[in-house]
């Protein structure tokens, strides 16, 4: 019950945060989320900045360049956008680790099934991705240059696309073999 309430509270907060446009309210919300962490505040702040800073900086910079003729409007839009990102990511980092999603979604077998599928894929792909990084690390005496990093990144991405495609085909065949498509033409 607690997990379901937390999840529903989180979803309600996300919807509310997307409906609010006043930067003061968004800022106050972000501060509230941070303060609610108590002694974990420095850790939460560190994780929040690590998760958001690259994207926030890249998007803000791009937006400023694109809207350079009207920087005042761009500033207001960016402030709202960046505060909302901080609030939403802060909420996710603060609330979701405390939710047992299996229990929270206990009311629906289908949702729990989807959760298991997603979790297993994330874990499996996470381990595989770590292997790719470790393999490059094991073969190089120093940090690789941008061309090698790019080549490695592209090859890794291509492998994951092929793997996802292969897995999707295998899963479809498995579903077909178990009769999922029997009622389709």
């Amino acid at each position: 019950m607690r997990d379901r309430a937390l999840l529903l509270g989180y979803l309600a907060a996300v919807v509310t945060a997307t409906l609010v446009h006043d930067p003061r309210v968004l800022g106050a919300g972000a501060v509230l989320v941070l303060l609610s962490a108590g002694r974990d505040l420095p850790r939460l702040l560190r994780r929040l900045l690590r998760a958001t800073l690259p994207v926030v900086l890249a998007v803000s910079l791009g937006y400023v360049v694109a809207a350079r003729d009207d920087l005042a409007t761009a500033g207001a839009v960016l402030l709202r956008l960046d505060l909302r990102v901080l609030l939403l990511v802060g909420l996710a980092l603060r609330v979701l680790p405390a939710v047992n999603l299996q229990r929270a979604l206990g009311f629906s077998d289908s949702l729990r099934f989807l959760l298991v599928l997603a979790t297993s894929q994330v874990l499996a792909f996470g381990r595989l991705f770590a292997d790719f990084r470790h393999a490059l690390d094991a073969r190089t005496p120093a940090r690789v240059g941008p061309p090698t990093a790019l080549r490695h990144g592209a090859a890794t991405a291509a492998w994951f696309v092929r793997r996802a495609e292969h897995d999707a085909a295998a899963m479809t065949q498995a579903l077909d073999a178990r009769g999922l498509f029997l009622d389709r033409d």
């Binding site: 595989l128 292997d131 790719f132 470790h134 393999a135 490059l136 094991a138 073969r139 190089t140 005496p141 120093a142 690789v144 080549r151 490695h152 592209a154 090859a155 890794t156 492998w159």
Partner: peptide, 30 residues
């Protein structure tokens, strides 16, 4: 890194160069 080599269980994790020759020559070039 020169003296200790690790062969991964999943060979795909190690392969990212354009050709087999480049792949094998990657270490010496590095």
């Amino acid at each position: 890194r020169r003296e200790v080599g690790l062969l991964f269980q999943n060979p795909d994790a190690m392969l990212f160069n354009a050709t087999v020759l480049d792949e094998i020559a990657f270490g010496p070039r590095q």
